[in-house]
Design a protein around this nucleic acid. Structure first.
Length: 120
DNA sequence: GATATGACATGTT
DNA sequence: CAACATGCCATAT
């Protein structure tokens, strides 16, 4: 099967310059495509969205998400396989429990990216 | 416009 | 493995 359920989005080639709002929308759309039980890094999500150097921007997008969002923000972790929140924070614990409830195991505060990271 | 700040990434020490 | 340095890019002041 060659049809990829999660195709990388090509950066717009049209003349219209893409606003950050446009990019944000693409990022959120790609985020919604991360399957249950899998994770991706901020950089992966940026790449999927067609903006490989925007890992930091992805973080700022997620930060602004409403608390009641249905999007799987918890499936996004950093390149070290760690949760990008202070260990003692409630946000950290929330993300951890959500991940484990999906079968993503964390050992020594780290996810095995070799196992759980999505394939680009 | 200059600086500082982030839910980042990667390479070097 | 940890600490540090650089690069990156949008936001806020």
């Amino acid at each position: 099967m060659n049809n990829n359920p999660n195709p990388p989005v090509t950066a717009p080639t049209s003349k219209k310059q893409s606003s950050t709002e446009d990019i944000r929308h693409i990022v959120l759309q790609q985020l919604s495509s991360i399957p249950i039980g899998k994770v991706c890094t901020y950089g992966d999500l940026a790449k999927l969205s067609g903006y490989p150097s925007h890992s930091r921007f992805v973080g700022s997008v997620l930060r602004k998400l409403p608390a009641d969002t249905k999007l799987p923000w918890h499936r996004v972790i950093n390149g070290q396989g760690r949760i990008s929140f202070p260990q003692d924070s409630t946000a950290y614990n929330k993300q951890l429990s959500r991940l484990e409830s999906e079968g993503v195991i964390m050992l020594n505060g780290r996810v095995d990216l070799k196992v759980y990271r999505i394939r680009l």
